[in-house]
Each structure stands twice: as structure tokens, then as C-alpha cells.
């Protein structure tokens, strides 16, 4: 018993160290957002200082935070819903009715994520221009949904594969159509898996910077573009940039915190209730 509790303590300590190491950049960013510009860049770094909210006031005055945030919310949710709508039937077919080509198809889908985005920037930009999708939320929703699709399909495929085939077959014998099997039988069973997939997709969309900076200008610009606007070539900017970054990640941080149980359960214990 003693040895076990000792190993638990070591594991707990390691977990705490890992958690603190991961949280440190966020905490440091938040601290920098409460400093003056000169304090934020001071060498050696300042741990004791008089906090100020001046950077938040300045950031709010200079940019339409709520407009950027609304774009981030609409684009992240829209892209996630679109990706799920495409990925659920695809993952269902590949998990429960696999063919010889299923594995190859899955690997090919994943391999598209390995292409550096800048390699296809010009063709994508031209397509967006020709279809009048430049600087539109619809354009970014389509782009994000397609770029996250391989990961969403892979995650759902893994969850669907864990579903006992007998349940599916029993419902087919009972006369359920394929659509009914998916909507009435399968989806309720894998709700935790779908929820964690959706959460991951939202986080990926929220943090995506390359396409949002390149395909948006003003109307559809999300919070990543908002953050980018506070970096300055000549003049101190770290404190204001930290304030803007804190404001940009706050909603997704709260969402992640609120849903961490579901996220962890979905990712670690499998999909089936």
C-alpha cells in the first residue's frame, strides 16, 4: 500500500509539473497584459509590478473586439457543423462497412494535412476570388471545414469502430434504414465521442491563423487577425499584444474548462456510453 501511495504521489507531482509548464505561457501572457510596455519587455523580467488595465482599455478603443469575436464564433461553429455533417456518414461507412480501399483512403485523407498550406495559397486564393468568397464567413467556414475534415473523420472513425456491430445489425434486422441506424442508434451511442471531436474542431478553427489572415480582410476577420494587428515593427507592443491575446483566447479557454470532463472522457475512455 505504501509503495502504491508513493508512486501515486510521484505521478501526481509529475502531472502538476506538466500542467504548470503548459499553463506558464498563458499565465505569463496574462501578467504581461497587466504591465506597462516598458515593464513587459524589462530585462530581467519583472515579477512584482503595479498592475494596470490600460492595455485592455487601449485594445478595446482601437479595435472592434466584439466584431472579431462574433466572426470567430460563427466561423468555428459553422465549420465544425459542416465538417461533422460530412464526416459522420463518411466515418460510418468506413468503420462499419469497410472495403479493401478503406485504409488507403483514410491514410490519403490524413496525408493532405501534411501539405504546407502556403503551397496551395495562390490557387485557393484565386478560387475564393472567382467564387466571391474572399473576406466572407462562408469562405472561411468552407476552408476550415475542409482543412479539419481529415482529423474529424479519423476521430469519428475510431469511435464508430468501437461500436458493437451486433447493435447495428440488430437494428437493421428490425427494419431500420441506414439513416435511422445513424441518427437513432449510432449517434446517441457515440455522443461523448462526437462531442469531443466537435470540441477539438472548434479549438482548431478558433486558433487557425494562416487561412484566416490570408482569406479575410475586414468583414470576416476573426480573432487571430485581431491579435496580429497589435504587433508593431517600430514601437513597443508586447503588453498590448498580450492583452489582445488574453481577450482572444478567453472564450475558448472558458469553453475548454467547462467541458474538460467530457473532452477527457471522450478522448480517453472511448466513444460508447
Amino acid at each position: 500500500m505504501k509503495r502504491r501511495s508513493g508512486s501515486h504521489r510521484v505521478a501526481g507531482a509529475v502531472a502538476w509539473i506538466a500542467a504548470l509548464a503548459m499553463f506558464f505561457p498563458i499565465a505569463w501572457m496574462f501578467a504581461a497584459s497587466l504591465k506597462t510596455e516598458v515593464e513587459a519587455i524589462a530585462t530581467p523580467p519583472l515579477f512584482l509590478f503595479m498592475p494596470t488595465l490600460e492595455n485592455y482599455r487601449e485594445v478595446f478603443a482601437r479595435a472592434d473586439y466584439l466584431g472579431f469575436a462574433l466572426n470567430s464564433i460563427v466561423i468555428s461553429l459553422g465549420a465544425t457543423l459542416a465538417a461533422l455533417a460530412l464526416a459522420i456518414p463518411a466515418a460510418f461507412a468506413m468503420a462499419l462497412y469497410p472495403t479493401n480501399r478503406t485504409r488507403g483512403t483514410l491514410l490519403w485523407m490524413l496525408s493532405t494535412k501534411m501539405l504546407p498550406p502556403v503551397g496551395v495559397l495562390v490557387p485557393i486564393y484565386l478560387i475564393a476570388r472567382e467564387t466571391a468568397l474572399l473576406d466572407t464567413r462562408t469562405g472561411l467556414i468552407i476552408m476550415f471545414a475542409l482543412s479539419n475534415l481529415p482529423i474529424v473523420v479519423w476521430m469519428l472513425f475510431t469511435f464508430f469502430k468501437e461500436t458493437p456491430k451486433d447493435i447495428i445489425e440488430a437494428s437493421r434486422i428490425d427494419g431500420a434504414s441506414v439513416v435511422q441506424v445513424i441518427t437513432v442508434v449510432l449517434l446517441p451511442l457515440v455522443t461523448p465521442g462526437i462531442a469531443s471531436t466537435a470540441l477539438l474542431s472548434i479549438i482548431l478553427c478558433w486558433n487557425e491563423a494562416f487561412w484566416s489572415l490570408n482569406l479575410s480582410a475586414h468583414d470576416a476577420a476573426p480573432l487571430t487577425a485581431f491579435i496580429a494587428s497589435f504587433s508593431a515593427p517600430e514601437g513597443l507592443f508586447w503588453a498590448k499584444l498580450s492583452a489582445a491575446s488574453t481577450m482572444a483566447i478567453a472564450p475558448i479557454l472558458v469553453l475548454g474548462w467547462a467541458s474538460q470532463r467530457q473532452l477527457v472522457r471522450g478522448l480517453t475512455f472511448g466513444a460508447v456510453k
Partner: peptide, 12 residues
């Protein structure tokens, strides 16, 4: 409408 970007991002 203002689009404010980091110098290198702006160039690209």
C-alpha cells in the same frame, strides 16, 4: 475599413 497587420504578414 482598417486592416492592421504585422509587417511581414502585411507584405505576404
Amino acid at each position: 475599413n482598417w486592416v492592421v497587420l504585422e509587417e511581414n504578414v502585411l507584405r505576404q
